[in-house]
Structures are given as structure tokens and as C-alpha cells.
Computed example of a mutant assay.
Amino acid sequence: MTGHDDWLTGGDRRAAAVDRIERVALALFLEHGIDSVTAEDIAAAAGCSRATLYRHVGGRSQLVRAVVLRAAGGVVARIDKAVDKVPAQRRPVEAILAAVAALRADPVLHQWLTRHRSPGTDGLLASAPELGHLATTLTRIAPDDAAAGWIVRVVLSLLTWPLPDAAAERALVERFVGPALRPR
């Protein structure tokens, strides 16, 4: 023994590795920003090799998406509950506004999505199929990758460039987003 515990002994090694790597990645992303953290940084902080990181979580972009989805789990449930009974024609608008409110209320995601933004990170998030699927599910629009990516971009835009108040944001989303996503 080298003087420190092997955190991958016993139990489900894969689950333990994924959990630890994702938790460490989230902490590093929050502290330094997504673009500033390398796979080497994450592996070192998690106490594993880069090979272990890639074997269990894939490449950096897969890890970013996994960490966002992990952090968003509770937020998604709150959004879904907020719009559960909303009629189909109003659902896209209400889901987008509920997403913005829920993300602002979540200290981890709000900090992450507003403080550590870059064009590369925004592009990665907007094109992540997992986030697009969440957008499609929450708004209940027909599966459409372009529309799903656009919904993610609308939410990110409102987080980054908020309007003066909730009423102004609602008016903007109702006027420009609602008609584009209304069931035909």
C-alpha cells in the first residue's frame, strides 16, 4: 500500500469512477470555468489517470454534457412540475420561462452558466443532444434538433442578458419564441 486508499476498490468500480470524476469536474468547472479546465486537471484532482477518465466518462465534451445533465437533474424536475398542466399551445413559452427561473434559483447552475461562459462552451451546450432532448421533452414540441438547440440558446441568452424584469422577458418570449414553437 502506498499510504492512500484506492477509491476504486470494492463495489461497482465504474459507478464509483463516474461519480467521482463528474463531481470533481463540476467543482473545477465552477472554480475555473469550463474552458480553463483540462482532462489532465480533472484526472489529477480525481486521483486517476487520463486513461481512467476517458475509459469511464469519454472525452471532455462528453464529460461537460454529463456534468451539466447531472447538475440539471433537480432543475428539470422543477420545470416539469411547473408546466405539467399547461396547455400545449402555451407549453413552449411557459417551459422556457420556467427554465430560466429555475436556473436562476439554482446557485450552482446559475453561477456556472453565467460566470464561466464562452462561445465554445455555449456552442457545446446548445448542440448537446442531451440538452436538446430535455428542451424537446419539457416544451413538448415535436422532436426537432434545430428547434431544441434554439430553445437552449434562448434560455442561455436570457440568463446572460436578462431583461429588466420577468414581465419584459415574458413579453419577448411570447412575441418571438411562442409563435415559432406553437403547434400547427
Results as ranks from 00 to 15, higher is better:
74 G>L: 00
148 A>C: 03
139 T>E: 03
142 A>I: 01
59 G>L: 05
89 Q>H: 15
45 A>Q: 07
163 L>F: 09
41 D>G: 03
2 T>V: 13
98 A>K: 02
175 R>W: 03
76 V>A: 14
139 T>I: 05
18 V>W: 02
50 R>F: 08
95 A>Y: 07
157 S>V: 14
160 T>C: 14
122 D>P: 04
165 D>M: 13
130 E>Y: 00
101 A>R: 15
73 G>S: 14
24 V>A: 02
163 L>I: 08
40 E>H: 06
4 H>G: 13
44 A>H: 07
127 S>F: 05
115 R>M: 04
128 A>K: 10
81 K>H: 14
91 R>P: 07
7 W>F: 12
92 P>S: 10
15 A>P: 00
43 A>V: 00
160 T>Y: 15
100 V>C: 01
78 R>Q: 14
121 T>P: 05
141 I>H: 01
1 M>Q: 14
77 A>Q: 14
21 I>A: 00
132 G>T: 00
128 A>L: 08
95 A>L: 11
128 A>M: 09
139 T>A: 12
86 V>Q: 07
35 D>P: 07
66 A>K: 05
104 R>K: 15
162 P>A: 13
179 P>D: 07
55 R>F: 09
184 R>I: 07
54 Y>S: 02
156 L>Q: 12
84 D>R: 12
77 A>N: 09
41 D>M: 00
16 A>P: 02
160 T>D: 15
19 D>G: 13
40 E>L: 12
98 A>Q: 09
36 S>G: 12
176 F>V: 14
91 R>H: 08
7 W>S: 12
85 K>Q: 13
143 P>Y: 08
60 R>L: 10
168 A>I: 08
180 A>I: 00
78 R>F: 05
43 A>G: 01
149 G>T: 10
74 G>F: 03
104 R>C: 14
114 T>R: 04
132 G>P: 03
117 R>G: 04
47 G>M: 10
180 A>K: 06
158 L>A: 15
12 D>G: 10
13 R>N: 05
2 T>S: 15
131 L>F: 07
115 R>P: 03
130 E>Q: 13
169 E>S: 09
40 E>F: 05
87 P>A: 15
160 T>W: 15
32 H>G: 08
159 L>F: 09
1 M>R: 14
34 I>N: 06
84 D>M: 08
86 V>W: 06
134 L>Q: 14
142 A>G: 04
76 V>L: 11
15 A>F: 05
78 R>D: 10
96 I>L: 13
151 I>K: 11
162 P>G: 11
138 L>E: 01
73 G>I: 05
163 L>E: 09
26 L>K: 06
118 S>E: 08
16 A>T: 05
125 L>K: 05
47 G>S: 06
12 D>S: 08
52 T>H: 00
140 R>K: 07
23 R>K: 07
68 V>K: 07
56 H>E: 00
61 S>Y: 05
114 T>I: 00
121 T>F: 10
144 D>M: 02
51 A>P: 00
79 I>E: 10
95 A>D: 04
115 R>K: 07
112 W>Q: 06
163 L>G: 03
11 G>K: 05
81 K>W: 13
155 V>W: 02
